[in-house]
Design a protein around this nucleic acid. Structure first.
Length: 182
DNA sequence: CATATGATGGACT
DNA sequence: GTCCATCATATGG
């Protein structure tokens, strides 16, 4: 079962944490690639100096769109995939940083690597994860806090950002070997 | 059009 | 840990 918009229409920090353990599914032709989300980061709007929503471009506009909107943005020759969260009009998003491949082999332990492995590019930009037929998040834990409790989740400061907030906005599954670490 | 910047990755010490 | 290739994006002229 796919995760719906209700899942994404919450605070980015909550969504980032709850996305851990869920399964990202990518359909390419007749192949289905499934990968577990093991590392995420939350980004906010004007109050977040690391977020690109502090600038007044297309990225900010996209972050203001409805929950579940896919935001693909390029940096240093890589595509990074985000899901817009919270309600329409509030600039929040969750960056997918790392995946654990479940039925295929590929390097997915980094935000730029996983988009290459899943062949995610700008063509997904501004589409909605709840409505696309070749990319979605499969419910594994969903809103079930009890099941979610079986996961060991670690919090940390975000990676690679120039000016981070003094909050821990990076979440990953403790001990998972596919987590990118530096 | 010109230029600055960076939410990276890989090679190397 | 350091260095750097490389390009999407924002902004200024």
């Amino acid at each position: 079962m796919k995760l719906g918009k209700g899942f994404f229409s919450r605070n980015a920090k909550e969504v980032a944490r709850d996305l851990l353990g869920e399964v990202l599914v990518r359909k390419i032709g007749n192949k289905i690639l499934r990968a577990k989300i093991v590392e995420t980061e939350a980004y906010f709007g004007s109050e977040d100096p690391a977020s690109r929503a502090v600038q007044n471009g297309d990225l900010r506009k996209t972050m203001l769109m409805e929950p579940g909107t896919i935001l693909v943005y390029g940096v240093h020759n890589n595509w990074l995939i985000n899901f817009v969260t919270s309600n329409e009009g509030k600039a929040e998003a969750v960056l997918i940083r790392s995946l654990e491949p479940l039925n295929f082999e590929a390097k997915t332990n980094g935000p730029g690597l996983l988009t290459k492995a899943l062949r995610i590019g700008k063509d997904f930009h501004k589409k909605n994860i709840c409505e696309t037929s070749n990319l979605w998040v499969e419910e594994n834990f969903g809103f079930d806090e009890t099941k979610k409790g079986s996961l060991e989740i670690a919090e940390a400061f975000r990676i690679g950002v120039k000016k981070d907030l003094s909050k821990k906005l990076r979440f990953y599954i403790k001990g998972n070997k596919f987590v990118s670490r530096k």
